Amino acid sequence: MSKKQRLTTAVLCAVAWIVADQLTKAVFKQILAPGDVKSFLAGSLVILPIYNHGAFLSLGAQMSDATRNMIFIYGVLAILIGLSVWLFRSSRLGRTEVVAIACIVGGGLSNLFDRCVYGGRVFDFLNMGIGPLRTGIFNVADVGIMLGVALLLLAGMKRKPTSPGSAAA
């Protein structure tokens, strides 16, 4: 992919995740009051609005505000900047890796926006599962991040190994 193609693909993909996440959050903030729970598909999909101080599965929610902000605002920002630099500087990335990184960056930026606007919290509202086997509560940005990570892992497994000193494909 040319640099222009990488940039166009990445920006469109990242913006799509940001828009989808922020729109769904706005919709569910409007139609659900705190404490409301809506169940769909025989309980397989549950919508319940919460503001999460932590990360995935509320990881880090018990940390002090200063530590949590340092990690979840400044640390995440550093990771997103690093991924963006990698995306725009590496000519070896294929379309799958470009889309994967853009998914992570878009989802990460959307959750970072929430943290900056809502006092270090992220609005989550989705829960899925069957019976007692359930996910944590998450949002659309989290789906983008997880999809991006999965795509990067998949692309890494598909990449042919190169011997030391040979030109990478």
Rank of each mutant, 00 (worst) to 15 (best):
residue 3 K to V: 15
residue 3 K to L: 13
residue 4 K to E: 12
residue 6 R to N: 05
residue 6 R to P: 08
residue 7 L to G: 01
residue 8 T to D: 04
residue 8 T to S: 05
residue 9 T to G: 03
residue 9 T to V: 11
residue 12 L to N: 06
residue 13 C to N: 08
residue 13 C to E: 13
residue 16 A to Q: 07
residue 16 A to V: 10
residue 18 I to Y: 06
residue 23 L to I: 15
residue 24 T to S: 14
residue 25 K to G: 00
residue 28 F to Y: 04
residue 28 F to K: 01
residue 29 K to L: 12
residue 29 K to N: 07
residue 30 Q to D: 11
residue 33 A to I: 08
residue 35 G to F: 03
residue 36 D to P: 00
residue 37 V to P: 03
residue 37 V to Y: 04
residue 37 V to M: 08
residue 39 S to K: 08
residue 40 F to L: 07
residue 40 F to G: 03
residue 40 F to A: 02
residue 40 F to E: 03
residue 40 F to Y: 15
residue 44 S to V: 12
residue 45 L to G: 05
residue 45 L to R: 05
residue 46 V to G: 01
residue 46 V to E: 15
residue 48 L to S: 10
residue 49 P to F: 02
residue 52 N to W: 13
residue 53 H to Q: 13
residue 55 A to L: 10
residue 56 F to A: 15
residue 59 L to P: 03
residue 62 Q to I: 04
residue 63 M to D: 13
residue 64 S to V: 08
residue 65 D to Q: 06
residue 67 T to A: 10
residue 68 R to D: 04
residue 68 R to L: 08
residue 68 R to S: 13
residue 69 N to D: 12
residue 70 M to L: 14
residue 70 M to C: 09
residue 71 I to V: 15
residue 72 F to A: 00
residue 73 I to H: 09
residue 74 Y to G: 09
residue 75 G to D: 14
residue 77 L to H: 00
residue 79 I to H: 09
residue 81 I to E: 09
residue 83 L to N: 04
residue 85 V to Q: 04
residue 86 W to M: 09
residue 87 L to Q: 11
residue 88 F to C: 03
residue 88 F to K: 03
residue 89 R to L: 13
residue 92 R to S: 12
residue 93 L to V: 07
residue 94 G to D: 14
residue 94 G to I: 01
residue 95 R to G: 07
residue 96 T to W: 04
residue 96 T to V: 15
residue 97 E to G: 09
residue 98 V to N: 03
residue 98 V to P: 03
residue 98 V to M: 05
residue 100 A to D: 05
residue 100 A to L: 11
residue 100 A to S: 13
residue 101 I to L: 14
residue 102 A to G: 02
residue 103 C to N: 01
residue 103 C to Y: 10
residue 109 L to Y: 13
residue 110 S to K: 07
residue 113 F to D: 07
residue 113 F to G: 05
residue 117 V to Q: 08
residue 117 V to T: 09
residue 117 V to A: 07
residue 118 Y to P: 02
residue 119 G to Y: 12
residue 120 G to I: 09
residue 120 G to N: 07
residue 121 R to A: 11
residue 121 R to S: 11
residue 122 V to F: 08
residue 122 V to T: 11
residue 124 D to L: 04
residue 125 F to S: 03
residue 127 N to V: 13
residue 128 M to H: 05
residue 131 G to M: 14
residue 133 L to R: 02
residue 133 L to D: 10
residue 135 T to H: 10
residue 137 I to K: 00
residue 137 I to C: 00
residue 138 F to T: 01
residue 139 N to K: 02
residue 142 D to N: 06
residue 142 D to C: 05
residue 146 M to E: 01
residue 147 L to Q: 04
residue 149 V to H: 06
residue 149 V to T: 14
residue 151 L to Y: 02
residue 153 L to M: 15
residue 154 L to R: 09
residue 156 G to F: 12
residue 157 M to L: 14
residue 157 M to S: 10
residue 158 K to M: 11
residue 158 K to N: 08
residue 159 R to V: 10
residue 160 K to S: 10
residue 160 K to Y: 09
residue 162 T to Q: 08
residue 164 P to C: 05
residue 165 G to M: 02
residue 169 A to Q: 14
